[in-house]
Computed example of a mutant assay.
Amino acid sequence: MAGLVDFTQPTLYLSAATILFNPTFWNFVARTEYHNKTLTKLAGGNALYGCYGLAVTIFLLGLIRDAVYERALRQQPSHPAMLGFVPQALAVGLVASGNVLVLSSMWALGITGTYLGDYFGILMDEMVTGFPFNVTDAPMYWGSTLSFLGTALWYGKPAGVLLTVLVYTAYRIALTFEDPFTAEIYAKRERERRDAPKKKA
């Protein structure tokens, strides 16, 4: 492994740190918002503006993470087996597929649906079940993972594959926290809807 990955490069660890930081950050902030309405208060009591603020922050953090990742790859050794037409063609296919999953997910969910609006009390009318959610339950995460892997192949860098495994692991762990929490938010709404006629009666 030491011959495939240059572990002396600080950018490798910086890239790993940004990969781990981002989902940890937005999960912490979103849960803080849900319980304490912190961002809503900072936005003058407007939950929508608070969600937009978080959306911009997450988007910018994503750009920084991607830039650090690319810089880290440029400072890593390439492997001959990962260079050539076939790996590059596969790289293009992976990045294209990843972007389709991410962009179509954003289109289906909208800004508030994409950027944790449910933690702000901005819930969707019903669950989205069409593309890309009929392909995977987390198209944003797995699309991003495919793009990371595609970029690693494009540059022919084993270190990129290693970092992609970290991306996959970070997202998989994040989902174990996010999915049950989000499901409970919507379950709570359904309970409140069922109880509403009883209260009126």
Rank of each mutant, 00 (worst) to 15 (best):
M1T: 12
M1R: 13
A2R: 14
G3I: 07
V5Q: 01
V5W: 04
F7M: 06
T8N: 14
Q9L: 09
Q9D: 12
P10Y: 07
T11P: 00
L12Q: 03
S15M: 10
S15F: 09
I19E: 04
L20H: 11
F21H: 07
P23E: 05
F25V: 03
F25Y: 15
N27L: 15
N27E: 09
F28K: 10
V29T: 08
V29C: 02
T32F: 09
E33S: 08
Y34T: 01
N36G: 04
K37V: 04
T38S: 11
L39N: 02
L39W: 13
T40Y: 09
L42C: 05
A43K: 07
G44S: 08
Y49G: 06
Y49W: 14
Y52P: 00
Y52M: 07
V56D: 00
V56T: 04
T57M: 14
T57L: 14
I58W: 04
F59T: 09
I64P: 01
I64R: 06
R65P: 02
D66H: 08
A67F: 15
Y69E: 00
E70T: 12
E70M: 12
E70L: 12
E70I: 11
R71W: 15
R71H: 15
Q75L: 14
Q76N: 03
Q76Y: 11
G84M: 12
G84D: 01
P87H: 10
A89C: 13
L90C: 11
L90V: 15
L90I: 14
A91T: 05
A91K: 03
G93V: 05
L94T: 13
V95P: 00
V95I: 14
A96Q: 05
A96D: 06
S97F: 13
G98L: 02
G98E: 01
V102W: 10
L103H: 10
L103R: 03
L103W: 11
S105H: 01
W107L: 06
W107C: 05
W107N: 07
W107F: 10
A108L: 06
A108I: 03
I111N: 01
T114W: 09
G117C: 08
D118S: 13
F120Y: 10
F120E: 00
F120G: 00
I122S: 04
I122T: 06
L123M: 11
D125R: 12
D125S: 13
V128T: 12
G130R: 15
F131D: 01
F131V: 07
F133M: 04
F133K: 09
T136L: 08
T136W: 09
D137P: 01
D137T: 15
M140C: 08
W142E: 08
S144G: 14
T145N: 07
G150A: 09
A152K: 03
G156I: 06
A159D: 06
G160N: 04
V161H: 03
V161M: 11
V161N: 03
T164G: 11
T164F: 13
T164K: 04
V167Q: 04
Y168P: 00
T169E: 05
A170S: 14
R172M: 02
I173R: 04
L175P: 00
E178N: 06
E178C: 08
D179R: 14
D179W: 13
P180M: 09
P180I: 05
F181D: 02
F181Y: 15
E184G: 04
A187E: 08
R189H: 12
E190P: 01
R191Y: 07
R191F: 04
R191E: 02
E192R: 15
R193Y: 09
A201Y: 06
